[in-house]
Design a protein around this nucleic acid. Structure first.
Lengths: 402, 402
DNA sequence: GGTGATCCTGCAAAGGTTTGCAGTGAAGTA
DNA sequence: TACTTCACTGCAAACCTTTGCAGGATCACC
C-alpha cells in the first residue's frame, strides 16, 4: 500500500538498504532484525520493523539464497499431474511446506524417465531438496542424483535414501483375501507400469495371498496406468475366465469396468473388480469401486517433513565449514511405510464358490472415507454396506536404516 | 557423472570460477559462453563448454536472477488443486513454461482470498510473473497486486489487466437452448461461489437465453463448487419442480445427480442435468454427463504465453535503465476469450414438452472428446449419441484493449 | 608504417543479503 | 578505580553471475 511506486505503477524494489536509511541503522542491523531478532535491541527492532512495514519491504530470497545456500524452496517431481492420484499429494505437500515457510516447484514428467533426470538437474540449484513421486527411472540413477541434491522418494524403495512408501503389499493381500472370502478362486492381477515399485510389491503380495487362499492368480500386463489401459484389457479378462480382478490402480479398474460393460459383462454380478488408491472418483462411479485406499495426503506431508528434517541437519554451502567438507553432513535414510485400507463398496460381490450369507469379519458402518455424502447411500439402491477391512486409521511403521 | 564429490558423496558446488580456471579463461568469458555465445571465439567456446560439461557446471539461477532481475520462474496460484478442473490447466501451463525455460511455483489457496494475497506477496520476488487462476479476491485488490508483479488472470475479467477467459456465457446459452430444444420450460441454474466471475457470466447469459426461449429460470445458490455442494441441493431441486438443471460445474452436477438418485429421482428421465468443464470424470459417471467443455489446457498455455510475452517486453531491474524508471515498461492488457463447446451425453433427455423425434441441429458422430475409448459406446447400452453443439474446435476471439 | 576497424577477452562493479569480527558503551565485579 | 562481561551495532567480505568499458591482437587498406 505505502510502497513507493512510479507514476505508471511499476513497483520500485525496496531493499534492506532503504529500510536501514529510513530507520537510521546499518543494513546489518536490519538483516538481523529479520534473521536473528534476538541479537538486536527491542527498541531498535520495533523501529526497523515499522520502517520495513511502512516501505513494504520484503526480503529478497534469491539474494538470501546466494549467501546462505538455502533457497527455502523444494521441488516436487510428479509422473502425471492429471492422474487423480497425485493432486491430493501435491496439495498436502504444498500446504505442509508453506507451513514451514517453503515454496514448492511442481514439475510434471509425463511418465518420462529422461524428463525426470533433467528436472532434477534443473531444479537442483534452486531448491533445498526434491520429492520424487513414483519415479520411473532406475534406482541407481536415483542414487546418483541424490548426490546432487537431497532427495526423498515417494512410492519407491531405494536403499540408502529416505523413502515414503504405502503398504500396497498389505493392501493387495487384503484385497485378495476379501475376494477369496467372497468365493472367488480364479483371480487376475491387472499390472501397471513395469518400472513401478508399487507394481512389483502388489504382484508379490497378491501371489502369496492367492496361494495361501487356494486361489489361482493370473498376471496381466504391464499396462498404462490409465482408464484406457484398463479398458483395453477387458476382452482379455473376459477370455481368461477369471471371476475377479485386482487392478493396479483405480483408473485402470474404472476403465476395465467400462470395457467389461461394453462387452456386456456385468460388475460385480459376473466379475468383481478391486482398485487401488481410492481416488475421489471411485466413490462416484457406478458401481462404486471397492478399492485399497492409499494415504496420499499423509504421504505428501510425511515426505516434506522428512526432506526438511534432513535439510535442517545438512546445510549446504555453509560458510563456516569449508565448502564441500562432508563434516556434519549426515543424511536421513529413514524409510516410512504408511498403512493402507481396503474400502469395500459395490464393485465386488459373491464369486462362484460363495458360501451363503457369512458375515464379513470386518467392522461395519458407513464409509469413513465419505462422510455425510450420499456417495454410499445403501438402502435405496441395495448396495452392499461399505466397510473397512483391517484397521481404523493410517498409522506409521517406521524403520530407520543405518 | 564426473562432477567432483567428497568421500561421502556430498556435491561440491561447481561455479563459473572453476570452469574458468579449468579452461584458462576469465570468468566473464565463461559467463558469455552461456549467456551470449556469439561474443566468444568458437574455439574458446568449445573448450569452455567441454570443461563445463566435464565439471558438471550448471549456472546458479539465484545469482543470475540477482543481477538480471529475471528469475525465469513463474507462479501459479490455484484455488484448489484437488478440483479436477485445475490439473489439466496446471499441466499445460507447466509444460508451456518449461518449453520456454521457465519453472513453475504452484500454490494452493483453498479458495481463501487472504491466502491468495499473501501468496502473491511471497512469490513476487521469486518469479517474473504470476498466473492467478479463478481468483476469489476483489478486482481492486488484484489491480493493486499487479503493481507488485506482472499478473495474468484466468477466469476473471479485470479491466486493464491481461486476462484469459472461457466463454461460459456462450456455453450457458448453448446449454439452455439445448434444454429448451428438448422441451424443458422450467429450468434451474445451480450457482457457484458468489465471488466467481464465471458464476456471474453464467447467470446473465442463462437468464437471457431462457427468456428468449420462453423458459422460466430459477436461480439456486450460491453453493460450494463441489460434489457436496451439488448433492446438498437435490431436495431443493426436487421441490422446485424444474425438469432441468444447469450446474455451475461438473462436480456439482455429479453431486446433484447422486443426490437426486438418493431421493429416487431419475436422471435424465425425470430431471435433465448439464454441467460445466468437461472434467475427465464426466465421461465416467452413469449417466455420462452432458456438459459445457471448457478449454482448460489451452487456457493454461495461453496464460503462460501472455505472461512471458509481457515479461519480455518489460524487463525489471534492468541495469541500463534507471531502476524503477517506468521507461519502456508497457504491459499487455490483451484479453483473450476462449470458446466453449456443449458436449451432449446422457444426462439430458426429453422434457415435458418434447416434440416427437425432431433431430438435433448439431453435427453427429462419436464424442470428439473421448477418442477411441469405450466411454461413449452406444449401441450396447442404448445411450444417446454424443455430439457437439456449436463449433468444431476451440478458437480464439481476441480483443486487445488500449 | 600508420590508421582504423573488427574481434575477442579481461577488468571490475553491481545486485541484496548474511555473518565473523571488532568496536562501543554500559553494567557488573573485584 | 581497574577490569571483565555483556548487549548491541557497524564494518566489510563473501555468495555467483552479468555486463559496460577498455585494452590487445589481428587484419585490411592507404
Amino acid at each position: 500500500m505505502t510502497a513507493a511506486t512510479t507514476d505508471e505503477g511499476a513497483a520500485v524494489p525496496v531493499t534492506i538498504r532503504d529500510v536501514a536509511r529510513a530507520s537510521g541503522v546499518h543494513i546489518s542491523t536490519v538483516s538481523r532484525t529479520f534473521s536473528a531478532p534476538h541479537l538486536v535491541n527491542p527498541e531498535t527492532r520495533v523501529r526497523v520493523l515499522a520502517c520495513a512495514e511502512d516501505l513494504g519491504y520484503r526480503p529478497n530470497r534469491a539474494a538470501r539464497a546466494l549467501i546462505t545456500g538455502r533457497t527455502h524452496n523444494i521441488g516436487l517431481i510428479i509422473a502425471d499431474i492429471a492422474n487423480p492420484f497425485f493432486p491430493p499429494l501435491i496439495k498436502a505437500a504444498e500446504s505442509q511446506a508453506r507451513h514451514r515457510d517453503y515454496h514448492v516447484f511442481v514439475a510434471d514428467t509425463n511418465e518420462d524417465p529422461t524428463a525426470e533426470e533433467e528436472l532434477v538437474h534443473a531444479l537442483a540449484k534452486q531448491v533445498d531438496g526434491v520429492l520424487l513421486c513414483s519415479p520411473r527411472m532406475s534406482n541407481s540413477l536415483i542414487e546418483q542424483l541424490s548426490r546432487e541434491v537431497p532427495l526423498v522418494v515417494v512410492n519407491r524403495q531405494v536403499t540408502g535414501l529416505p523413502c515414503v512408501l504405502m503398504d500396497v503389499g498389505q493392501g493387495a493381500r487384503a484385497a485378495i483375501e476379501h475376494l477369496v472370502g467372497l468365493g472367488h478362486d480364479r483371480i487376475a492381477l491387472l499390472g501397471g507400469p513395469r518400472s513401478s515399485w508399487t507394481n512389483r510389491e502388489m504382484r508379490r503380495a497378491a501371489a502369496t495371498a492367492a496361494r495361501a487362499g487356494g486361489a489361482e492368480l493370473t498376471m496381466l500386463g504391464p499396462n498404462a496406468p490409465t482408464e484406457t489401459g484398463g479398458s483395453a484389457v477387458a476382452e482379455q479378462v473376459r477370455r481368461s475366465g477369471v471371476s475377479a480382478v485386482l487392478a493396479y490402480n483405480d483408473l485402470m479398474a474404472i476403465g476395465l469396468i467400462e470395457g467389461l460393460d461394453a462387452l456386456g459383462v456385468r460388475v460385480p454380478q459376473e466379475v468383481s473388480v478391486v482398485g487401488v488408491d481410492d481416488i475421489a472418483l471411485s466413490r462416484l462411479t457406478r458401481p462404486k469401486l471397492t478399492t485399497v485406499a492409499t494415504p496420499t495426503a499423509a504421504a505428501g506431508r510425511t515426505a516434506v517433513d522428512m526432506l526438511l528434517q534432513q535439510d535442517t541437519e545438512s546445510p549446504r554451502g555453509a560458510r563456516g565449514l569449508g565448502a564441500g567438507t562432508a563434516l556434519g553432513v549426515r543424511r536421513t535414510t529413514a524409510q516410512v511405510m504408511l498403512q493402507t485400507d481396503l474400502v469395500i463398496r459395490d464393485s465386488t460381490g459373491p464369486g462362484p464358490h460363495a458360501r451363503p450369507a457369512r458375515p464379513l469379519a470386518a467392522s461395519r458402518g458407513p464409509d469413513p472415507h465419505c462422510p455425510a455424502g450420499p456417495g454410499t447411500t445403501t438402502a435405496a439402491t441395495g448396495d452392499a454396506i461399505a466397510s473397512k477391512y483391517c484397521n481404523g486409521g493410517s498409522q506409521l511403521r517406521v524403520d530407520v536404516a543405518r
